[in-house]
Computed example of a mutant assay.
Amino acid sequence: MQLQPPVPAQPPVPALEWCDDHLRILDQRSLPGALVWVECHDADDAAAAIADGVVQGAVSAGLVAAYGIALAARRIGRSADWAVDLQTDFERLAQACPASSHLLWVLGVLDDRLQRLRYQGQGVPDQLAQVAVNLHASDEESRRALGRLGVQVIRRHDRQPQKFLTLVSPHSDSHAGALDLVRAAQGAGLVEQLYLCADEASDACRLALWELDRDEVATALRGAAAAGQLMRSDNISWVVAGAHRIAANGDLISDIGTYSLAILAMHHGLRFMVVAPSAAFDLALESADELDPADGLLSPEGRLVMDVTPADLIDVIVTERGVVERPDESRIAELLSPRHLH
């Protein structure tokens, strides 16, 4: 097989576009049939976009919430006490998706900045808007770094186009990092085929297929039950997973079915890669043994939506800060050390 040249992707469609006095959001509900944008002019619009599914995924919802606070401050214009005047807007946005720890973290970042700015008068709206813009830019840079470092890992093992397998769950957006990696690998000419495993035609699966099609990734949709046979018969090189949380020792908490994929990958001698932002590490959780099943593994209805993959089944974790081969507590601590540079 000849080494393929990099594949030019279609120009990206911005999911979020900040226009200073409003926010434009690509309506995820309309895809792939049509490109429809929804405009947000205040915190109420932003909260509705999150709650109604116009925007999907924890990171995107958090960014919309950040811009929602900036828009609320723009509408107020002047205030003697910004924290008091914006309190209702913070509460409304938090209630739009109360189960999202990332959205609540983003609102915490805005609130921390606001506490330092609350009596500064007219400059507060501009400064809150800049915080939201900075969070947005940081997320985009993080995704580029994840892809770049993941491609380096893939090339170290094989410079030829390869076959990948990943899982998409309707219950979370943990797979986002895995898809970012595959699209980056496609741009580097390293993807022969991606098998996308999903058990139902969910919105998450539909959006993933649309994104991959735009980047011309050869993608085949398969049921999760077919993963073992694909690994046995189709010369797959990499199983790629995202993360909901990662314990200090490298144990992975991710979409239900990830543990099964890791076991199958080990049995068939395939490499298992986790792709996730460094924020996914929960150093307060020494190992997944400490995890209460009710703490993130179960849906509000009591359905199991997450599982645990022990660290010894993981070949490599790729983050925007660097790469951890054969993850364990000491290697992860080194990666997350302030002294670490990738």
Rank of each mutant, 00 (worst) to 15 (best):
M1D: 08
Q2D: 15
P6G: 13
Q10G: 10
E17A: 11
E17Q: 11
W18C: 01
R24A: 14
D27L: 06
R29C: 00
S30L: 09
L31H: 05
P32E: 01
P32I: 00
A34V: 11
V38M: 10
A46I: 05
A58P: 00
S60M: 15
L63M: 02
V64H: 01
V64N: 03
Y67S: 04
G68P: 01
I69G: 11
A72D: 10
I76W: 05
I76G: 05
R78V: 13
W82T: 03
W82L: 01
A83G: 08
V84P: 05
Q87G: 12
A94R: 14
C97R: 14
A99R: 14
S101F: 13
L104V: 07
W105K: 12
G108W: 05
L110G: 02
D112C: 03
R113P: 02
L114V: 10
R116I: 06
R116P: 01
L117G: 02
L117T: 05
V124H: 00
V124C: 00
A129G: 04
A129L: 02
A145C: 02
Q152F: 10
I154V: 15
R155T: 02
R156A: 12
Q162K: 06
K163V: 08
F164L: 04
F164K: 01
T166P: 00
T166R: 04
S174A: 15
L181R: 02
V182C: 00
R183P: 02
A184Y: 04
Q186E: 09
A188D: 10
V191Q: 07
Q193N: 06
C205D: 12
A220C: 14
L221V: 03
L221M: 01
D234L: 15
D234H: 13
D234E: 15
A241N: 03
H244I: 14
R245P: 06
A248D: 11
G250Y: 10
D251F: 05
T258Y: 10
A262F: 05
I263P: 09
A265K: 09
H267R: 15
R271Y: 09
M273P: 02
P277V: 05
D282T: 10
L283W: 10
D289F: 14
P293F: 06
G296T: 12
L298W: 07
V305D: 11
M306F: 09
D312S: 12
D312R: 15
L313A: 10
P327H: 04
P327C: 11
P327T: 09
D328W: 07
A333F: 03
E334G: 13
L335M: 08
H340K: 07
